[in-house]
Amino acid sequence: MMDLLLSLEQAGQNLLGAFWLPLWTLVKIMVIVGPLMGAVAYLTLAERKVIGWMQIRIGPNRVGYFGLLQPLADGIKLLMKEIIVPTGSNKFLFILGPIMALMPALAAWAVIPFNAELVLANVNAGLLYILAMTSLGVYGVIIAGWASNSKYAFLGCLRSAAQIVSYEIAMGFALVCVLMAAQSLNLGDIVNGQKGSYGLLNWYIVPLFPMFIVYLISGVAEANRAPFDVAEGESEIVAGFHVEYSGMTFALFFLAEYANMILIAFLTAIMFMGGWLSPLPFLPDSIVWLFGKVAFVLFLFLWFRATFPRYRYDQLMRLGWKVFIPLAIVWVVVVGAWMQTPLWVW
């Protein structure tokens, strides 16, 4: 497989010369983004199914067998709908908002490794790049909320911006623990650092379990998912920052939210759960493990949404600033001290 790809690359190089590199990169980007969009579509179906089951319902089952064509129908519906631009809104920024929301959610995928060789850009500072990209996601929300010229949207965007900036810090500290353990910012190296003869016990989830919890919960908050979806808060501010959006512009926000969810699930799997490494030492490492772990984390996201009521805003801020950040800072020190002792075996 790898040889075939290499020979294809060689042939292209000879045929197209300087134009080959951008073209080939574009093909690789499509190969990642295409399935990602499919995954997003079916994640929405999975969400409705799982939450339905937990509420003793059966979820969508009319469009196609088992409701399998439901995402397609939803997509077509959103495409056909009119995009309404409110009067008094800033038109350029109004359209830019959803684009800015989706852009970082997709750009972050450039450095995600799928297995030891399969990565679009093997960047040394991959982890930093991911942090930078996820921190850009908030601009979509801010721009959309401000450009809509609506007080609900504006309140939603202020809430969301404060929330994302707060939880980013806890998330960053949790990742600092990971990169201390791995001694590298490269995502591939981080996974390889979790390799060992004990399988599951070699993963960073074991020494960094509190950070895993902090990262997972901050991830839920970063993606603006229930129970931290105060930015949307249907019962208080209608739908938050995207209240004025319709049709495809709304769909972009939707795509961005779910793409962010999948991204955070991938990162959790890579940082804490050993990426493509197998949990049992006698089974081979494979990309299947990675997808399995991602599916598990995504299921947790849906499970949380079906279980927990929405946090009140001051509780949410307290959790971020007064619980997670101190906990994460303490654990950075603990890990630092731990690594100086012979007890550190990871």
């Binding site: 089951w53 003793i56 319902r57 279980t307």
Partner: peptide, 22 residues
């Protein structure tokens, strides 16, 4: 230890496999 959260998760987790009443 997030005891109460886990209790809540267990409840919804159980209902996931309950007979559906739709």
């Amino acid at each position: 230890l997030l005891f109460e959260l886990l209790k809540g998760l267990a409840l919804t987790g159980r209902y996931m496999f309950a007979r559906k009443i739709t």
